[in-house]
Design a protein around this nucleic acid. Structure first.
Lengths: 207, 207
DNA sequence: CGCCATGCTGTGCACTCGCACAGCAATGCT
DNA sequence: AGCATTGCTGTGCGAGTGCACAGCATGGCG
């Protein structure tokens, strides 16, 4: 897995790198993301990524200084897409409901997110990227919903908005994860619980 | 990484393997678990595990047919310990409260669990082990708490016991995960929310 | 025309990996 | 005493890895 050459920290000249807006580069990132989802981060090697994209292995090193940089690029693309999609959801007429639906989409990144979480355990750069993404993700929710919450008759003592956000996020991610394993005990009950709360503030069928 | 063995069935005589109750074997399992927590499943190689345990690499293959078998052993040990500890928590005078505290212990496996989840994505044997463990884990909770719930004045329409269990599990695991990344936005609020619910059924200071 | 930046490639090094196979020393069984 | 089992080890193969380095062809620009 780790076959690191002798010299790791050659800081000065670095080598010639390809352009960031290259189409080839994007193809490599996408191939890497697919590989990650299909076979885990351990399968993301320069030769495999290249093979998947129909390109030569050296191109990976031409566009990315290290494999970690590739992984980071994959993460940033996925993170931006997610923020994009969440932002659209939060702009809906019933943002709470939309947020709940959004975070329950299977495409919400489930498997890939898991891989990155595991990666974060021993790759400081990735850990950092995930942390700031998570923070921004939550802040985006809070910002978009703060005005809406004021108009609902939510007693902030009884149910602080932030608590509801964390609650929804926790439940949807754990449920999604368990479902992907084939475990579904108790899911229906907790989903109904959340949806009842949402129904109170955003009754279905009302625009 | 990929060592596809065409022969999955144990029909072949395979090679000589060490005893399952060996002390050396246990040492290897523990070394593997530590490595996993410290550096991810990618770091669990025969040579590294052996080095960590102060043993020779070949011993890994002497006690485990494949590296997957090692990983599985690590998981099963951890799973049993967790079931053990949860069972003790559920036997407390205030089982709901104990369960909540138990699932909020950092040692609840956080990082290692994450690694196994990621592994499960592409290792069917491990996926299966995790699924049945998760199911048993939840069932153990349900069984231990069903009688208790009856004595509390919980309206099962408003808050089904199963929903509360899934809710507590989801929140504690996501909170723990985020905290390990340094993200804590909204945690205090949601924790208070859960603890208020618990307080209703199991008032603090009452034995 | 020469020049040089850019995208890409051929070759190769130093290293890690899983795992096989043959054997050794000690211990227990008969 | 003879033999088999058990724990462990030396050696080594074939495959895979990250990444460096020195080129090649092309196209824009002076």
């Amino acid at each position: 897995m780790l076959a690191k050459g002798a010299k790791v920290a050659k800081s000065a000249p670095s080598r010639r790198l390809g352009a960031e807006d290259s189409k080839t580069r994007a193809a490599l990132v996408e191939a890497a993301q697919q590989l990650m989802a299909e076979a885990g981060y351990g399968a993301v090697s320069s030769r495999r990524v290249a093979a998947k994209a129909g390109l030569k292995p050296q191109l990976v090193h031409y566009y990315f200084r290290t494999m970690d940089d590739l992984l980071l690029a994959v993460f940033q693309v996925a993170a931006e897409q997610n923020l994009e999609r969440q932002s659209r959801a939060l702009a809906a007429r019933q943002p709470l409901r939309a947020l709940w639906e959004f975070s329950n989409e299977p495409a919400a990144g489930g498997i890939v997110v898991m891989e990155f979480m595991a990666l974060a355990n021993h790759r400081p750069a990735i850990r950092q990227a995930i942390a700031s993404y998570a923070e921004e993700f939550r802040q985006q929710q809070a910002a978009a919903l703060s005005s809406v919450f004021a108009s609902y008759d939510i007693d902030p003592e009884e149910l602080p908005p932030m608590a509801l956000l964390v609650l929804m996020a926790s439940i949807s991610s754990v449920i999604g994860l368990e479902r992907s394993l084939g475990v579904t005990t108790g899911h229906a009950e907790v989903i109904r619980l959340v949806e009842d709360v949402i129904e109170r503030y955003e009754p279905q069928g009302v625009g």
